[in-house]
Amino acid sequence: MNRFFTPFFKTLVDHEVTVELKNDISIRGTLKSVDQYLNIKLDDISVVEEIRYPHLSSVKNVFIRGSVVRYVHLPGAAVDTALLEDATRREAAQASAKAKQG
């Protein structure tokens, strides 16, 4: 289903990421797994504004439903930008080829 971003996130497993949810809560933790819906598992989590959002202060690891994610802040050094751009060109070329067929 998500051929493009799922493999990309898999290359970032074991890196620290910050996931900002659509309810404004930001959760920082170690990325443990990602699936086809971009559901995310995080370990050793901390909530960025803990005073405002104390609900998760005793929680160690979470499974986040992909649909509630707004942003994922990524470590810039861990992202292979050339690879991503190449993959985007391929994906866009395939999409336009499909559009012409249909």
Binding site: N2, T81, E85, A87, A95
Partner: peptide, 22 residues
Amino acid sequence: ASAPVNEPLDLAYDSHCNLVLG
């Protein structure tokens, strides 16, 4: 010919409008 997408590309997107931006 090999890059039908307008350049520069900053950085990645798919058909759902998922994006990675630098």
